[in-house]
Amino acid sequence: MLLYAIKRLILGIITVWFIATATFLAMHAVPGDPLSGDKAMTAQIRQNLEKKYGLDKPIGEQYLIYLNNLAHGDLGISYTQKNREVNDIIRENFPISATLGIMAVVFAGIGGTLFGALTALYRNKWPDTVIMLAVILGISVPSFVFAAFSQLIIVKINTALGFSLLPVAGWGTVSHILVPSMVLGLGTMAYLTRLMRSSMLEIVSSDYIRTANAKGLAQTRIFTQHQIRNAILPLVTVLGPAIAAITTGSFVVELVFAIPGLGRYFVQAVQQLDYTVIMGTTVFFGAFLVLMVILVDLLYGFIDPRVRLN
């Protein structure tokens, strides 16, 4: 198990290197260079800036400098916000995104398990139909639409009540987290519900549930002791991709709800073509996701005895 963890970690580091290299190459494929956007720049300033950011050096050397800095955890300085390190930006804004993301994962996980189990329990009866209809909507409606319509609904409710029940946008209090995290987790929850349902149904017709029935166990006991636990296992395996989906989903949700998280910052950096911030956040997000996938795999190994003991 330990050997497996180490192996995964080494592979993870190689993956992060691959992400960093791809990021570097993609950024250097830009026609012109990062400074060409600023038109009111004299040749002298331009030269100084090129020197400062090392843009005058050959690309191979730039790559080595970049990797060296990366290895020391230095992601560089923002182009558009002078004297702000990318590290500072991440340190300030990531906790907000992380809070939102964790809430969303918790919401999606609990909701997905619960609703998935319900649909399997009431297969082809009305709760199944209603939930699966909602799931299809959840999968088919883009998150920004949910975000926008939930805002619309908050406004309507606040207007109808005559006071502000929930804030429409912003960040700071618990009530600010509630709706955005639900919106953020919705797509993942729909996906998990679907997975949980099919996993439950597969288990219902499995041999060991037949055995449990032949033992004369009560249906509730079979459901709680045998079905749910085994059905949750596949859910854990998709937690990695789910976290990735929620991370990128946060871009939209943070944008719509005006939440000062790293996702919104990233989108703004993209719109302002702030190259160091784009590269820095991409590598950061990439490393974060790789780490999450490794953690989830290790967690799965811990939960499933078949993996744990092998």
Partner: peptide, 23 residues
């Protein structure tokens, strides 16, 4: 009372899949 398991016991063809893998 459920007669299955108490009055009639049953075993199946494929023991590898007939037991709960996580118990």
């Amino acid at each position: 009372k459920d007669f299955r398991g108490s009055e009639i016991g049953m075993i199946f063809q494929d023991p590898m899949t007939s037991l709960n893998p996580t118990m």
